[in-house]
């Protein structure tokens, strides 16, 4: 599904990703952890195609296609979804209208007719039930005045609507209360299937109790410095990052 080889990226001359290697197969869930400023969000932005970051080396293959050659919108249409760490507000545009546009643009890309309004509303209702979403949020302006938790839930709802092949979730659990965390995790688990992969960026083991990952990676100074299974996250929870940092320093 996704193959990242020796990916290096920088912004304004500052090197942030220093040779990332990561392979994600269909149906797998990968958790990425790591201290603040390690480059986790940068990795997700580069995957999504944010222009601010310059990729200086390496490649990213997605379903056999060179992702780096695609525009951000084409990546999305091919099935890459990013749940943002900080979702932006778009005043005056309802989530409903936004998603209708998104879905129809993707359908157009695939040579399909736009979805009929009634079909769309029916589809949206189903997904809202599945994700246990509150109706009022979808008619309000996108993310405008949403609480931190509501924004995150809205991201996951959009993910359910767009049915991506690869979902990257950047700290979707931050700012969620305990109930919302359960709702979001349940939602994600419902979307898990053998054809859909997840890259879950998080600081907390707690989320991984609900969404059990197949692999856990530690990102530090722009590199993946340690990988393991779900137990690695538990170890980090207890021991913190210092021992890993020490390992890295020693190796240098």
């Amino acid at each position: 599904m996704l193959e990242i080889r020796n990916l290096k990226a920088e912004i304004e001359g500052k090197k942030i990703l220093n040779g990332i290697n990561l392979t994600v197969n269909s149906g797998e869930v990968h958790a990425i952890m790591g201290p603040n400023g390690a480059g986790k969000s940068t990795l997700s932005s580069v995957l999504a195609g944010r222009a601010d970051y310059a990729v200086t080396e390496g490649e990213i293959m997605f379903e056999g296609k060179n992702l780096l050659e695609m525009s951000p919108e084409d990546r999305a249409r091919e099935g890459v979804f990013l749940a943002f760490q900080y979702p932006v507000e778009i005043p005056g545009v309802s989530t409903t209208n936004f998603l209708k546009t998104a879905i129809n643009e993707t359908r157009k890309y695939k040579g399909l007719e736009p979805m009929e309004a009634t079909d769309f509303l029916k589809y949206m209702r189903e997904k809202m039930e599945l994700m246990e979403m509150d109706k009022s949020l979808t008619s309000r302006s996108l993310n405008e005045g949403f609480s931190g938790g509501e924004k995150k839930r809205n991201e996951v709802f959009q993910m359910a609507m767009l049915e991506p092949k690869l979902a990257i979730m950047d700290e979707t659990d931050s700012g969620l209360d305990i109930d919302a965390l359960r709702l979001v995790s349940n939602g994600v688990n419902k979307l898990r299937n053998k054809d859909r992969s997840f890259v879950v960026i998080t600081h907390y083991q707690r989320l991984l109790d609900y969404i059990v990952p197949d692999f856990v990676h530690v990102l530090y100074k722009g590199r993946i410095v340690k990988s393991g299974d779900a137990s690695l996250a538990k170890e980090l929870e207890v021991k913190g990052y210092d021992w890993i940092k020490a390992e890295v320093e020693a190796a240098q």
Partner: peptide
């Protein structure tokens, strides 16, 4: 940021501007 957010959902820049401007004028 707004445009990139739209792009990430499969909405091209042209469409994104139209969406954002229409929202602005709602």
């Amino acid at each position: 940021d707004q445009i990139f957010y739209c792009n990430q959902r499969g909405i091209g820049t042209e469409e994104a501007i139209s969406l954002i401007v229409n929202g602005f004028c709602r």
